[in-house]
Amino acid sequence: MTKSLKELMESAELPPGEVTFAEPWEARAFGLAVTLASNGRFAWEDFRQRLIAEIAVADAAAGAGQRPATYYECWLVALEKTVSAKGITGTAEIDSRAEVIAANPPARTKAISAGPVKIA
């Protein structure tokens, strides 16, 4: 069933616990949730309850032998659901923006950061 902690720590591709974010997008997703909550766009508890629900889904998937969503994948889904519930933005708007970004890969430049892509 679930791996032991020791196995988990040994199998992790990263040194256990010493890396805050495995990929840059995780940091952006983290920062977005904290910024929005700090600025009063939603209550942290509201987001946290959705995060708990997504983690429960991932735990169930792992228990059923499927690939569970990673922690920050759960985080991102919870964040999307929270901003949608608050009417800040919605799935359709995020979908169409994602299509635009995917269809317009960043120009050849070293100036690309992990930040937002400006849409001309």
């Binding site: 990929e23 997008w25 952006r28 964040l79 901003v83 933005t89 970004i101």
Partner: peptide, 15 residues
């Protein structure tokens, strides 16, 4: 980009 990285970028861009 694809997957969650693209998704976060889109969300951030909208916000």
């Amino acid at each position: 980009e694809s997957g969650p990285a693209l998704r976060v970028k889109a969300l951030e861009s909208v916000l």
